[in-house]
Computed example of a mutant assay.
Amino acid sequence: MSEPARIHWVEDGQARSARWRSESGASPPKRVQVADDTLTADAAFRLASEGTAILWRGDFQNARQLLQALARRIDKPKKIKKAKARADVAAGSPLDAFNQHRQAQSQRARTLAMLVLEFDGAHHISLRRAPDVTQACSEAYGAGDAAQGNYVSALRELLGLIGAHEWRKKGVEIAALGGARIHPHYGVFAPVRGEYLALVAETALPPAVLASSLAFDIGTGTGVLAAILARRGVQQVIATDQDPRALVCARENLERLALARHVTLQEANLFPEGRAPLIVCNPPWVPARPSSPVEHAVYDPESRMLRGFLQGLAAHLTPGGEGWLILSDLAEHLGLRSRSELLDWIAAAGLQVLSRVDVKPQHPKAADASDALHAARAAEVTSLWRLAAVSKRASVAMN
């Protein structure tokens, strides 16, 4: 096992170091300046823009205000730059707009990550007015241990952990579960868009499912689709995920909903052993490279999960069974994947489309004209594709 990365700095004339912790996988900054409440926002912005980390020793709440000030400086475009950016987007393709948007997001994240804090091994922060973040950090990093020594992490990441902790406590109300709540864990995609859940809750179950009452849920995440299937009367759902965090999250949600006896959780890349009359999959919708581990639920590089699901589906369906692919066409509107590519992958996998049920998303960004990807989001449609294996007779006829 490799040694954990460390961050080094000089403080009070002494060379110091600590473990470096970054959920985004970022390397520890090479330049570090210790700072407190006397540091101005303009000076902090210059340091952060140059790649110098600011190790904060002042008041915790002042650090939060400084982070907000840095964000305002990043997000406040000059009129000339703003006009030029709009002209570039208008002249370019949706793919150009997406790439510019991702590049801007990445640069923004790198700059804001330069404001860092020191924690002890038990996840405590020794700053004035610092909150108790032990539980939030433990949920993401694991239980603290003072013997492990101090570590340094970005304030922005800590605020993300705190936000995830609050989501986990509060939960997300799911209309398709009669208003019951799903509690997402840190790093597990939260089911905040109800339209795709409604598709799974309302589409008629295949007759073969009614006979055997078995289904597979591929990439279960929070377990929400497995829960919906179980609530619809499917007696046994085998739900898989390759992320241990997701499996822990799904188990807790299913136990809270009193559905654990109907769902078997397995750590697997895509399919479990055997066949089922219904196999459901909601893969990440955007075929792009994630910039951090927590983005894997949104970005699917080269559509690997989508293509893997399609390629293995026929071999895991029982006769008369259906695969339900829940997929947004946002990637098509961004120029990241075409409809013809998707249809070619379906055909090459020995599958046929029985039908498709579409719904328009209702999320706020679809109506936000100031969003860089507004045109694509406004045109987006989410679909449930009902897929079936092509029969041998039909396959011979096509050949």
Rank of each mutant, 00 (worst) to 15 (best):
Y196C: 11
A297C: 13
A198Y: 05
G233H: 04
A226T: 09
L225H: 14
G233R: 04
Q266M: 14
F271T: 09
A198F: 03
P206N: 06
T203N: 07
S292Y: 07
E195W: 05
D241H: 03
A297T: 12
L265Q: 04
L197E: 15
G233S: 03
V192Y: 11
S291H: 14
A227I: 05
Q266V: 14
L254N: 01
H296C: 12
R275Y: 00
S213Q: 15
I228C: 02
A230R: 00
G219S: 06
L310W: 06
V237L: 00
L278R: 11
L257A: 00
Q311P: 03
T220K: 08
R275I: 13
L225N: 12
A288L: 07
Q236M: 14
R232Y: 01
A208T: 05
D243V: 01
P301C: 02
A208Q: 04
Q235H: 15
S213K: 13
A198L: 12
T203C: 07
G221T: 10
A239S: 05
C281E: 08
L229D: 07
Q236L: 15
F271S: 10
R289S: 13
F309T: 09
L214G: 10
A208C: 02
L310V: 07
L229K: 05
Q235P: 05
L254R: 00
P207M: 05
L254F: 01
N253W: 00
D241K: 02
V209P: 02
V224I: 11
V248Q: 14
V200C: 11
P206G: 03
V192L: 12
G221H: 08
S292L: 10
L306Y: 07
Q311S: 14
A250W: 03
G308V: 06
V294P: 00
L247H: 04
A276W: 05
A268M: 08
P290F: 06
S292M: 12
V200K: 07
S303C: 13
V263D: 00
P284I: 11
H262D: 04
G221C: 08
A227L: 02
R275E: 15
T203I: 12
R231M: 02
V237H: 01
G223D: 08
A297M: 11
E295Q: 13
I228W: 00
V192F: 12
R231W: 01
D243G: 01
T264V: 14
L229R: 03
A246W: 04
I279D: 04
R275N: 13
E273D: 14
